[in-house]
Design a protein around this nucleic acid. Structure first.
Ligand SMILES: NC(=O)c1ccc[n+]([C@@H]2O[C@H](COP(=O)([O-])OP(=O)(O)OC[C@H]3O[C@@H](n4cnc5c(N)ncnc54)[C@H](O)[C@@H]3O)[C@@H](O)[C@H]2O)c1
Ligand SMILES: NC(=O)c1ccc[n+]([C@@H]2O[C@H](COP(=O)([O-])OP(=O)(O)OC[C@H]3O[C@@H](n4cnc5c(N)ncnc54)[C@H](O)[C@@H]3O)[C@@H](O)[C@H]2O)c1
Lengths: 227, 227
DNA sequence: ATTATATTGTGAACGTTTTCACATAAAGGT
DNA sequence: ACCTTTATGTGAAAACGTTCACAATATAAT
């Protein structure tokens, strides 16, 4: 499922960082941003864990992969740890992102403030619909998908969000890969083939609803785990 | 992170089913739907694995938690296994879903065909904006959030999608829980508190972008795992 | 009927992730 | 200065998830 990430290693201790740890770093980052806004100077692993429904040991172990950020007896310095996590996650900078497929979901993503705040700036839109090409969405003019490769390069785009119908997603992703993009977030419910040096993440909303459905349907089977 | 699911057990062997297995069931279901459309009668664990980038052993193990669906030497019957998975996932029926917050992301979700195909029907919309209340979105009239509890009950809604600003999401979720809803899909980037008998899933798009960012930034540290 | 081939279902081995538990150390009170 | 409290950082243990490896069993060919 996560083939590519196996090669990702940590630059401090040469230990591989698990997918779960990376995802939790995002949670810590979000919690710390809030704590900072609330005026806290320090936070304990206990409090951080409580806020993100994790265990204190988990928080400490995750952070320990990257260094020693806390003070015994005191906790972690909120602002400083937030900055450190931003650097670790690579969001202490702006990423230039292009979005392909300015439809229902694509339009919703354009101009989403939270992305910008996290360092992801959608600066380019592509579509193949003549009625959309040339039109203005939140200040960005939609480009023709035919010009994909040249325009991605011209604007030194590093990440692409795919929001086209599932039927054409593989063709689009092939073009995106050919244009040299190494990071793709895909909303189409289809398993896309990419070379092993390209990072691909899928956002699959049906999967989350199916998880809920499974949970409801199977909860009554028996109440407790019985091996 | 997934506290509630710990209680979910399988009704055949009394073994707890892991979150990863449940998520893969969705992938199998999707692959089987496609295989059926392509006219295949049977499929091997090898082929199924290839299509979803998993291992054949993983596929067989996952399915074995729920029964014996295959024939040795032949593989799995495509149509039959798809039906069985639908029953296991609880999507062999229609779920009545309400959506709260008819903004950018909420509007995109209304009328999304894939949801309906998977058994999730958004039949009710809520908002607190007077300009939106009473307006028609893809055939559904937006209700006043003030009438949440009565309307959820009147239409026997079982699942709710939350697409309101993060600042108000906790209040909304409290009301939703009070109305007796047990399954919630949340798009607001905030950790919501719900009672332990309510299933909550979060869709966090920033997290996926941050994962990509981490992957790019950390790949250069070293190319290979060196323990 | 026999043999070759394909492929499942599953215990056991293995690897990874989480949790435990405690030595270590800073801060605050007396 | 000393004691108490708080809380980190981390090896080791436990729990969990994945892969291996093979017996079991079906089909197809001869
Ligand atoms: N709408 C949702 O709620 C939702 C939810 C989850 C996933 N998705 C997935 O996201 C994708 C987009 O969904 P949507 O509802 O926004 O669909 P949509 O039809 O509204 O938008 C698709 C857009 O892609 C454009 N497009 C089509 N072919 C193209 C091509 N070859 N090159 C460039 N652009 C092209 C279309 O012109 C359109 O603007 C789909 O794969 C869908 O399954 C949608
Ligand atoms: N837009 C995106 O691309 C995107 C992506 C991921 C997550 N999200 C999250 O989804 C949520 C919605 O985002 P959006 O961009 O659609 O925002 P939006 O402002 O466009 O929509 C929010 C909607 O909620 C309604 N609302 C506000 N308070 C309400 C209340 N108390 N009761 C009922 N309705 C209320 C508003 O009237 C509005 O229609 C936010 O939490 C956002 O962070 C958005």
């Amino acid at each position: 499922m996560n083939d590519r990430i196996d090669e990702i290693t940590n630059n401090l201790s040469r230990k591989r960082i698990s997918e779960s740890t990376i995802r939790r770093l995002s949670l810590y980052y979000r919690a710390l941003s809030l704590l900072e806004k609330e005026g806290y100077e320090t936070v304990s692993s206990k409090e951080l864990a409580k806020r993100e429904k994790l265990t204190p040991a988990q928080v400490r172990k995750d952070l320990s992969f990257f260094g020693s950020f806390g003070t015994r007896g005191l906790g972690y310095p909120v602002a400083e740890l937030r900055r450190q996590l931003a650097a670790i996650l690579g969001i202490d900078r702006q990423w230039q992102v292009a979005l392909i497929g300015v439809g229902n979901i694509g339009s919703a993503l354009v101009g989403y403030k939270e992305f910008v705040r996290q360092g992801f700036q959608i600066v380019k839109l592509f579509d193949n619909d003549q009625r959309k090409i040339g039109s203005n969405h939140k200040g960005i003019v939609v480009s023709d998908i035919a010009d994909l490769e040249s325009e991605l390069k011209a604007d030194s785009i590093e990440m692409v969000v795919i929001a086209v119908p599932a039927t054409v997603a593989q063709y689009i992703v092939d073009d995106v890969v050919n244009a040299g993009i190494k990071a793709i977030l895909n909303f189409a419910p289809v398993n896309l083939r990419v070379p092993s040096d390209v990072y691909l993440r899928n956002e699959n909303m049906s999967m989350e609803l199916e998880y809920l459905s499974f949970a409801i349907v199977n909860q009554h089977a028996q109440k407790r785990v019985r091996t």
